[in-house]
Amino acid sequence: MRKRDLLTPIGITLGFIMIMLAILTKGGTEGITSFLDIASIFVVIGGLVGSLFINFRMEQIKLMNRVLKEAFRQNDQRLPSLINLFINLSERARREGILALENELEEVEDPFIKKGILLAVDGIEPEVIHDIMHAEITAMEERHYRGRMIIEKCGEYAPAWGMIGTLVGLVLMLNSLQDPATLGPNMAVALLTTLYGTVLANLVFLPMASKLEIKTEEEVFIKQIIIEGVIGVQSGQNPRILEEKLSAFLSNDSNVKEETDTTVDFVEERINEA
């Protein structure tokens, strides 16, 4: 189940607000208009789009919208609930047989888990199950990398086009030194293009690319747990042993939280009894 990741829009908005406050502090409301320049926007955005057209195929560029949306979503799959799922599957498989797990698939939303359970029900060897599911993880990593690469390239090209705009502004300024009235606008183009490119790269594109990479690593980690769970269920491992094996993937923070929740429940029970 996926839900919105509010930290991404909050971080981007907070960054722009801090920049605006810095401008307002020194220049007032009139300072805001001095940081808006259409020519600079044309140079940075237009040059960035042109570079992407050269670097990628149209099919890849069309996927950019979907990739950007992933930076605003998060996976709400919790490891304790995932471990409990495989413990329940293991108990039922030992009690009723591996074929009984087909009835459990209707309640499972994750297609990766469904695929693993179906392979187990079909009697596929554990080594083959591991290879098949690991190949799917590898393919997923490659898809995520190709999508993330577009955002990373935006982070590389934006500052470069900012520098190109700076050079354009400097050339225009040097060519019109005899006209003092044009020095200010040309200097604005020279400086604002660098500002626009740097802000887009360091506040939007590069942080998003890093977040997408972290999300991929988290998803790979969860899928590895799923593989271990499927193989444990297929091989008929004792549910308690499977629980100990999968619990090793939990972080110390998760273990501490679970122990804290247990302690709180115990104290509440004693208070109620008193």
Rank of each mutant, 00 (worst) to 15 (best):
L203K: 09
M208L: 06
I231P: 01
F205C: 02
I231K: 07
E217L: 15
Q224N: 15
Y196T: 00
L212D: 02
P185F: 05
T194C: 09
F205G: 04
Q224I: 10
L212F: 02
V189F: 01
V199T: 05
I231T: 06
T216S: 12
G197E: 01
I225V: 15
P239D: 11
T216M: 12
T198F: 12
Q224C: 14
T194M: 08
I222H: 12
E217M: 15
E213N: 14
P207Y: 00
N186G: 03
F221H: 12
Q234C: 14
A190S: 12
T193Q: 00
T216Q: 11
I227S: 08
A190I: 05
E217H: 15
K223T: 05
P239N: 11
N202F: 08
L206H: 03
E228I: 10
I227F: 08
A209R: 04
V233I: 09
A209S: 14
K211Q: 09
G236D: 12
M187N: 09
E213T: 12
N202P: 07
S210C: 12
M187W: 08
E217I: 13
I222L: 15
L183D: 05
L192R: 01
T198G: 13
L212C: 01
L203H: 06
M208V: 01
E219I: 06
F205S: 00
V230R: 01
K215H: 12
T194K: 06
I214K: 15
A188G: 07
V199E: 02
T198N: 13
N202I: 03
V199S: 01
L212A: 00
I226E: 06
F205Y: 07
N202Q: 11
E219L: 09
V230A: 07
M187L: 13
S235M: 15
I226Y: 05
L183N: 05
G236W: 12
Q224H: 15
T194E: 04
G184E: 13
A188I: 04
A188S: 10
S210R: 14
V230W: 03
I222C: 11
G229L: 04
E213G: 13
K211V: 03
A190P: 04
T216E: 11
P239G: 11
L203V: 14
E228K: 14
L212M: 03
P207A: 03
R240H: 13
G229E: 03
G229W: 00
Y196H: 01
G184S: 13
T193K: 01
A188H: 03
N238P: 07
N238K: 11
V233K: 03
Q237I: 13
G229T: 07
I226T: 09
